[in-house]
Design a binder for these strands. Structure first.
Lengths: 139, 139
DNA sequence: GTAACTGCAAAATATTTGCATCCTT
DNA sequence: AAGGATGCAAATATTTTGCAGTTAC
């Protein structure tokens, strides 16, 4: 189970440290996105807050995780798919944020529709965040 | 020219104060979205930072402006269209953020495409933020 | 005149930076 | 052993809250 964590770190030429292992493991076990706060809460007092900031930034730089935009001033992070690599993200999938439980999902299988932009506008990236009621809360 | 500002404030049962007039005027003159910082910069030392926070919150509550999600931890605000009213936003249009000049546009005439969500997911709101190169920077 | 709004001060929170120490390789 | 990562302290930035004075109506 730890294998995948170690593999990912090695593949990205990162040294294997406790904080990186634990935080990456957290992402792999979670089906939703995580905010800085979620990580703090789930790791207890184990790591310094600064270490979490730096670890997340490292993962983003390496293309291991990506940020999910939100309007509530709480940046969330989620694992990138294999197609992502350093400096080159391909996570044009849709994110779903539940109004009830606040879980954020990556809906990998829903494609972002193509858009017809006004003349002169050129898209390089599209973020789509749908909010509403998730499949667990709607039961 | 100030008429529209006053009208909007009255229509929303807000008292007409200097900060509200100035800030709302700013939004009406700007074709893009504004972050807190933009407002501070454009009003000089005229208003207390706290007043700007409170004015923005008031406008959001009244449905005069809406927030635009972003992945860079800088919430931006833009005018809502007429269809918006208190507690009931209808700004399902697309936002475009320019990578070069950082201007954020509301592309009112580009519709958000309908989505087929997985079973159990129910959408109440869709935010779509496209980034790339805007029509001014691409010239 | 009264209720609402603003500015100031300060608290609470979030993020960044420098540096000495410790850990990975 | 060397370079990189971490923890701590502190600087910086952001947002919220309380309260007294001021303004809109």
């Amino acid at each position: 189970m730890h294998t995948q964590v170690i593999d990912t770190l090695k593949k990205n030429q990162l040294s294997i440290t406790d904080s990186r292992k634990t935080i990456l493991q957290l992402f792999m076990e979670s089906d939703g996105a995580l905010a800085h706060m979620d990580i703090e809460n789930n790791t207890g007092e184990e790591f310094d807050r600064v270490t979490i900031y730096r670890t997340l930034q490292t993962f983003v730089d390496k293309g291991i995780i990506h940020t999910i935009p939100s309007a509530d001033n709480a940046i969330r992070y989620a694992l990138c798919k294999d197609a992502c690599s350093e400096g080159h993200h391909h996570d044009n999938h849709i994110h779903f944020m539940c109004d009830h439980c606040s879980t954020t999902y990556c809906l990998d299988h829903v494609e972002v529709p193509a858009l017809q932009l006004p003349g002169g506008f050129m898209a390089s990236r599209t973020d789509m965040v749908v909010s509403g009621c998730c499949n667990r809360c709607s039961k």
